[in-house]
Write a protein that binds this DNA or RNA. Structure first.
Length: 328
DNA sequence: CGAGGCGA
DNA sequence: TCGCCTCGG
């Protein structure tokens, strides 16, 4: 879910053209979760092969990646590593919601209520180890680089953008800017040629609100993050007001006599001082056509015609790399 | 979600 | 050709 910053962050609308030849560091968990949630049949059943393995994420990764590359964008996927112990509560709550949703999905199916069924199916989406491993395998076949983060994928992606190795993080979660991503892009989807890309620039966000990054993190701590529950009744707007009035989280807590479930100093450190993998190589190879057909078609029942036409779109990246090599 | 088919 | 709808696995 991430921090609820929608009310205080004003995004800039951009076009896919603006991302041409740029490296976009995709938050793999965020992207894959979107696919698992939305690539479903009317009754909520995900796409599956004949052995009942879920394949929605394969469909999503194949078509999303090929479409981005066709647009001249260079995608990389960043996978989550070990999550901080502070995330346990959030994870437990999510697990509970998913189990509850699974029951409601089953019930709606029994009652023949398709709309209701799909709604709860979406909420029941779970990311298993198999789904992560399968996604990595597909990316390897497609020749698309991925990085295994030490901790939060968003932290790693943010580090890479900050360093200049990627132009922006691609994610729906505003957490990226807390982790220091200088740019993030939301709604990286292509529905019927129409896009609603939102560029969020950390510098502009801070300038608009006239605050520092530390203060932005402090607002998040008040609002609540994946690592703490925040203060009840304090949303982004109130949080901003409070931090601007009192300067920092410690003063806000003292002046208002708030109780925090996690020490703000620890939370600050989590967002401001995270460490990252540094020895990565970003290299895009041509997709392995034979392996792609074997994996997607033979093992997971994809249509060969569809897979091949998606793979054709990777030629764009190939040509660019070749022409660059020729140049030197 | 994204591709492909179909009707206007 | 475009927008809408259904299917994909």
């Amino acid at each position: 879910m991430g921090v609820k910053f929608k009310d205080i962050v004003t995004p800039e609308n951009i076009k896919f053209q603006d991302l041409e030849s740029k490296i976009v560091a995709l938050d793999a968990a965020n992207v894959i979760y979107q696919f698992l949630s939305s690539i479903r049949q009317v009754d909520g059943t995900p796409l599956m092969d004949e052995n009942k393995n879920i394949t929605s994420h394969f469909s999503g990764i194949l078509y999303r990646t090929s479409s981005l590359i066709e647009k001249g964008i260079k995608p990389i996927y960043i996978f989550d590593g070990r999550s901080d112990a502070l995330k346990k509560d959030t994870q437990a709550k999510r697990r509970e919601v998913k189990e509850e949703s699974q029951k409601k999905w089953d019930k709606a199916l029994e009652e023949g209520n398709l709309e209701e069924a799909r709604k709860y199916a979406v909420r029941s989406s779970r990311m298993s180890r198999d789904i992560i491993e399968g996604s990595k395998k597909l990316l390897e076949i497609l020749g698309v680089p991925y990085i295994q983060a030490l901790g939060e994928g968003e932290a790693q992606a943010s580090y890479m953008v900050d360093k200049g190795d990627a132009w922006c993080v691609g994610s729906q979660d505003y957490d990226c800017i807390l982790f220091g991503a200088t740019r993030m892009v939301r709604n990286l989807t292509i529905t019927g040629g129409k896009a609603n890309l939102e560029l969020i620039t950390l510098k502009k966000v801070l300038e608009n609100m006239e605050i520092t990054r530390e203060q932005l993190v402090d607002i998040a701590i008040l609002v609540g993050t994946d690592f703490n529950s925040g203060v009840k009744g304090v949303g982004a707007k109130t949080g901003l007001k409070l931090i601007k009035k009192h300067g920092d989280i410690f003063s806000v807590i003292e002046k208002n006599d708030y109780e925090m479930d996690v020490d703000p100093a620890i939370l600050r450190k989590l967002f401001l001082e995270h460490n990252a993998v540094e020895d990565y190589e970003l290299k895009w190879n041509s997709p392995d056509k034979e392996a792609a057909v074997d994996f997607l078609c033979n093992q997971h029942d994809f249509s060969e015609q569809r897979v091949l036409s998606a793979l054709d779109k990777f030629a764009k990246l190939d040509n660019k790399q070749k022409s660059l090599e020729d140049w030197f």
